[in-house]
Amino acid sequence: MKATEPDNRPVITMRGVTVGSLAAPGAVVAQAVNWTVAAGEFWAVAGLHGAGKSDFLLLTAGLMAPLAGEYEFLGEPMPIFAEERLPHRLKLGLVFEDARLFNTLTVAENVALPLRYHRGPADVAARVADLLAALELTPFADTHPGQLGRNWQRRAALARALALGPEVLCLDNPLAGLDPRQRRWWLEWLVSLADGHGLNGGRPLTLVVSADGLRAWRGVARRFALLEGRQFTVLGDWAGVEQSGHALVRELRGTREPEFDPRGGI
């Protein structure tokens, strides 16, 4: 099933972490989170709307500090704001649910921005062209994000997040609001990234996605967790999801989502 086995090196370690809310400082969306993500793993964190998945991912991506507890990314305490530790921080990428592209820049300029800022102008054009071509965004290179649909905006955000070649990528609800064909594209792409895509130097990418449901991620993600009622529960692999007696887990793993064979289309 898996093209590349995880090497078990912990990349994300949370001990007793309390997750706050970016919109409401001081509010708690999850507490006592104990979680370890090994290199090369593919996690899906499921929960209902309002459960705090986005805030959880923002904390995981280093945009928020834990209200309590310890969070280490590749052995370094998070979040990282110090300039001298920035290269370490850049090993972690984030794709927002609403893409959050810069509306004054074109798609190509959006993808080029992190490269220009962190690495200078050398080879930017070639890298951007590769990313746009791989994600089928070349026809939209000179288009402003506001003129694109949600799927294309999210693809551009994925290209931007991949530009610096991260080791870990967090994606906030990447399947939200997409039609079945678009969802299939995304699932195939994420599996190829997890297995080691050429765009990322062939290295398996550690992935953490948030999701409204579990079913779509069966056979795609390798580890599952549930966020509900301020509790973060690790479910393990799909067998663990199926064995869980949690009523919400049963509901989220329902049967309405179409089954998907991730290797079929690659």
């Binding site: 970016l22 509306n103 800022y117």
Partner: peptide, 25 residues
């Protein structure tokens, strides 16, 4: 208007996610 709209649209968080200092940029 530009910065307020960018702030409301979450572009500042997007910059931080890319390791770009919003004040610098």
């Amino acid at each position: 208007v530009e910065l307020g709209t960018a702030r409301a649209a979450g572009e500042v968080e997007a910059l931080e996610a890319l390791g770009i200092d919003p004040v610098h940029y």
